[in-house]
């Protein structure tokens, strides 16, 4: 089998204050997959995400991205390969204009001049935000800012796109537009979300994290229709939503 894009083995981590968030997580994500990472608040989802690009370092176990271990000496390349889109676009967009912000990652990789401009425009076109290139981020709507946040990461040509709560705070139209964009991207995706219909719509596979371990890993449809599993992991479908009425979504 090909080397997985994401290879997490026995990952355990405790915060300096003694709170242990992860107790041995195993997770493999292969090229081209779109995987939803589900779990209640406090399950360790964010902690896991911060290990994927070496912001946090494993207490025990290992993380590798396309075969490259996440270690101090590889961090620069790891952070190019793993693109994290954080939940609040105001945390992600810190430069005075959209252009400078999207250019930040590639510029750190040493891309300059016309090549940099081309990368920036291409990334913005992929999320349909090219016309806003010279606007300051705080003058954009929330949905537009989320899309620019995705572009800032796409500009780095990541091998895996990690999205933290991509649909949070979006109005239904922006939520659908973002789904269209994510579907159009030819990139491996790991999506942390509480939005179960969104997971079903976009990800054929779901991983449930609960209490710092992987509680389930399987087809999203099977996970969402397993009532006992759902209840045991504090997962609940929104009122009126029943995956069975849709049938198994072909991906």
């Amino acid at each position: 089998m090909a080397t997985p894009v994401l290879d997490v083995r026995g990952l355990a981590f405790a915060y300096p204050d003694g709170h242990q968030a992860l107790f041995g997580v195993d997770l493999h994500v292969h090229r081209g997959e779109r995987v939803a990472l589900l779990g209640p608040n406090g399950a360790g989802k964010t902690t896991l995400v911060l290990h994927l690009n070496g912001i946090l370092t494993a207490g025990a176990g290992s993380v590798a991205v396309s075969g490259m271990p996440v270690e101090q000496k590889n961090l620069k390349e790891i952070r190019r390969r793993v693109g994290i889109v954080f939940q609040d676009p105001d945390d992600q967009l810190f430069m005075p204009t959209v252009r400078q912000d999207v250019a930040f990652g590639p510029a750190n990789q040493g891309i300059k001049g016309a090549a940099l401009d081309a990368v920036v425009m291409e990334a913005l076109e992929r999320v349909g935000m090219a016309e806003f290139v010279d606007r300051p981020p705080h003058h954009l709507s929330f949905g537009q800012r989320r899309r620019v946040a995705v572009a800032t990461v796409l500009a780095m040509e990541p091998e895996i796109l990690v999205l933290d709560e991509p649909s949070s705070n979006l109005d239904p139209a922006s939520r659908r537009e973002l789904a269209d964009i994510l579907r159009s991207l030819d990139v491996t995706v790991l999506m942390v979300t509480h939005d179960l219909p969104y997971a079903l719509e976009l990800c054929s596979r779901s991983v449930v994290l609960h209490g710092g371990v992987v509680a389930a890993d399987g087809a999203t449809y099977d996970v969402l229709t397993d009532d006992a599993l759902m209840a045991a992991n504090r997962l609940e479908l929104p009122f009126g939503f029943d995956p069975r009425s849709i049938g198994n979504v072909p991906h």
């Binding site: 190019r80 793993v82 954080f86 945390d91 810190f94 990652g105 990789q109």
Partner: peptide, 10 residues
């Protein structure tokens, strides 16, 4: 959080 986001982009 902004610093984290900056580190994440190299």
């Amino acid at each position: 959080r902004v610093h984290l986001a900056m580190l994440s982009r190299g």
